[in-house]
Design a binder for these strands. Structure first.
Length: 428
RNA sequence: GCCGCUGUAGCUUAGUUGGUAGAGCACCCGGCUGUUAACCGGGAGGUCACCGGUUCGAGCCCGGUCAGCGGCGCCA
């Protein structure tokens, strides 16, 4: 039986068997207290000398943290036990006495990364992995309800997706391949068949960033939709974010408590979000004392300062054309700005989405590439998509790990990824 | 890549003016009839990141190397 099932009155006075790992152990004379952990929760077991065999009592005394164990016992309600219920052991079977477990109460974030393969067992990581699962599930159900098809783009690619970003190079049968840094261009190809498409795939960036919100490998949720404008894309993203936040609140109350998240902060994520033109955000930044030119990109510091007093996400739309990659569509009424948007998460978390309309006219795309000193031949198949019945369309990319960091109220992206990869961490 | 900081036991750390390396947790032994990352007594555990220098003497001062952290830039 799983521990989660006995943490209520339904099994009081009945004899049950649980299996798991020793989470805490204490002894006091003829009593041994073992807190047992499984995937569903923790429960205290009392082992009393004389009730179990002498061999079993010795085994209980010897049970170190993480010892794998099976316990049969009578379930009772007990105020003094950590989770309100406890088992009075009648039988004990140890599978393996654990060696000295390296994690104790004194631990640094750095050490926990070094022994991440063991730290995954912690209540914190277990809670985070459950919340991550909820997040991915809710993205998929939202997209399905909204008529999007999930597709699988390649991870090995032959060329650049975005000019400028750093690619990981991999040997590929005598030629060079790269790990994808965005699936956007591939989604645009899928779009001509399935119209509304999305993927949740890894993206890889060899940027030597060292910040609390960058990884070299991250979960990238990207979508592309035919016939959709920048404003319509924002509407959809707004619905999506409200949906996933609500879903997390409904499904993971216990896990949010384990990571000590103030759930009122999640409750506050309601429509409508704030929507500001780029210039307005520059103005907000200046009011906060930031030195900003009329055309300056928003760095992490700026985003933190701008978003820390907000309770809901902020759309920033129509950035200056010169700040954005070539595929963004300039506003036909105002070519100095593109029809794009970022979503900044509140409480200082900053950018979680970048998206907008793509240039769908072939000649315009080529002209734009030339003005950025890019060779259209390097993007041959991407340009080719504009040759056969091109249509207006929009898309976005969302950093799943960033969103989870924000929703869970954590201070570093490393905390929401089971095995985070950064410039300086490849193991475990 | 740039700037700044840090490196002492398995973990978290103290270490004064340069003069015998100390603690808490974890571990081992013993004690305790209800513990809450218990308590009490005892024990074991150190290449003070590495290399070189100054000095009678270096964890401490100087130079270099490596590693990590924080920030910037870049981005999701």
């Amino acid at each position: 039986m799983h521990i989660g099932e006995i943490l209520n009155d339904s099994h009081v006075d009945s004899v049950v068997t649980v299996r798991g790992w020793v989470y805490r152990s204490r002894e006091s004379g003829r009593l041994v207290f073992l807190v047992i952990r499984d995937s569903t929760g923790i429960v205290q077991v009392v082992v009393e000398k004389g009730v179990v065999t002498p061999e079993e009592f010795e085994a209980a005394k010897r049970s170190t943290i993480e010892t794998s164990i099976e316990v049969e016992g009578k379930c009772s309600k007990e105020q003094k036990a950590v989770t309100g219920y406890e088992l009075h052991a009648t039988k004990i079977k140890v599978y393996q006495f654990a060696e000295n477990f390296p994690i104790t109460k004194d631990k640094s974030d750095e050490f926990l990364l070094d022994i991440r393969h063991l730290w995954l067992r912690s209540r914190e990581m277990t809670a985070i992995m459950k919340m991550r699962e909820t997040l991915l599930d809710s993205i998929r159900s939202f997209m399905k309800e909204n008529g999007y098809h999930e597709v699988q783009p390649p991870m090995f690619v032959g060329g650049m997706v975005e000019g400028g970003s750093t690619l990981f190079e991999v040997p590929y049968f005598g030629e060079k391949a790269y790990l994808t840094q965005s699936s956007q261009f591939y989604l645009e190809a899928f779009m001509f068949s399935l119209e509304n498409v999305y993927t949740i795939s890894p993206s890889f960036r060899a940027e030597k960033s060292r910040t609390r919100r960058h990884l070299t490998e991250y979960s990238h949720y990207e979508a592309e939709a035919a016939w959709v404008s920048n404003q319509q894309m924002m509407d959809m993203e707004e619905d999506m974010i409200v949906y996933i936040a609500q879903h997390l609140l409904d499904s993971n109350r216990e896990e949010l408590e384990i990571v000590k998240r103030d759930v009122n902060k999640i409750r506050a994520i309601e429509k409508p979000f704030y929507r500001y033109r780029y210039e307005k955000v520059i103005e907000i930044g200046r009011q906060k004392g930031l030195q900003l030119d009329d055309v300056s990109d928003l760095g992490e510091k700026e985003e933190r300062a701008i978003t820390e007093d907000f309770d809901k996400p902020i759309f920033v739309y129509n950035f200056p054309t010169q700040l954005k990659p070539f595929y963004h569509r300039p506003d036909p009424e105002d070519p100095l700005h593109v029809l794009n948007h970022d979503v900044l998460a509140p409480e200082g978390y900053g950018e979680v989405i970048g998206g907008g309309e793509r240039i769908w006219n072939k000649d315009e795309l080529i002209a734009r590439m030339r003005s950025e000193n890019l060779n259209p031949e390097d993007y041959q198949w991407y340009v080719d998509l504009r040759s056969y019945g091109s249509v207006p369309h929009s898309g976005f990319g969302l950093g799943v790990d960033r969103v989870l960091t924000w929703l869970a109220g954590l201070d570093h992206i490393n905390k929401v990824v089971p095995f985070p990869r950064s410039m300086r961490r490849l193991r475990p």
